[in-house]
């Protein structure tokens, strides 16, 4: 065997380490990339999950403060988050779902079975809106203000701690802002 070939595993490992190192700091992905922060929600034209005939656009969702929750029935972590969202809905928090890269029937089944915390769901099977939003992976939750501007983004599960410590204070503050 050529000697240099024996260094290949080491080289491969070092590349992996660089990746992991970058990954560690990407992990502060609860912070939104500055490009999208305080920018308006991208425009889109998609159907709702419940009804393939009904189109929904940016204008249909904006106007009030809401959480845009990116999820998919294929995503175990989203399921872990699901019960908590149901609790938030009961407290009157407005949550709109972005059903991301999913199968319509499976997603509908899952909501029927696990409960539906969403006011309605935007169905995004190709991940178009997800791409515009810069979705890393599900679940992600965007906080959008009354003017339709993205004010905050949380990556990962929304649980009691995340809600109480980061999302709720911002959500409450945005509620008090005057409508445009």
């Amino acid at each position: 065997m050529k000697r240099w070939k024996l260094f290949l595993p080491l080289a491969f490992f070092l590349i992996l380490c660089v990746l992991l190192y970058k990954g560690l700091f990407l992990e502060n992905k609860t912070e939104l990339p500055s490009a999208l922060l305080n920018n308006p929600l991208p425009t889109f034209q998609l159907t709702t999950l419940g009804n393939p005939e009904q189109t929904v656009t940016r204008e249909d969702v904006t106007g009030e403060v809401f959480l845009l929750n990116v999820w998919g029935s294929w995503c175990p972590t989203c399921r872990a988050e699901h019960p908590y969202l149901l609790g938030l809905q009961e407290q009157g928090v407005r949550i709109i779902g972005l059903n991301y890269k999913d199968d319509r029937t499976e997603a509908q089944q899952w909501l029927r079975h696990g409960g539906d915390p969403y006011q309605f769901n935007i169905f995004d099977p190709q991940g178009k809106l997800g791409l515009d939003l810069g979705v890393y992976g599900s679940p992600e939750t965007f906080l959008v203000d009354k003017a339709g501007v993205i004010r905050y983004k949380h990556v990962g599960v929304v649980d009691n701690r995340v809600w109480q410590e980061t999302l709720k204070p911002r959500y409450d503050a945005l509620q008090k802002e005057a409508a445009p």
């Binding site: 190192y21 990954g23 175990p76 872990a80």
Partner: peptide, 22 residues
């Protein structure tokens, strides 16, 4: 333990711990 990837198993993530293991 570093929280690089989100998962149902993930422990509370902490970049300091991630740096140490890396």
């Amino acid at each position: 333990r570093s929280g690089v990837l989100t998962s149902v198993h993930a422990f509370a993530s902490d970049p300091e711990r991630g740096m140490f293991i890396l």
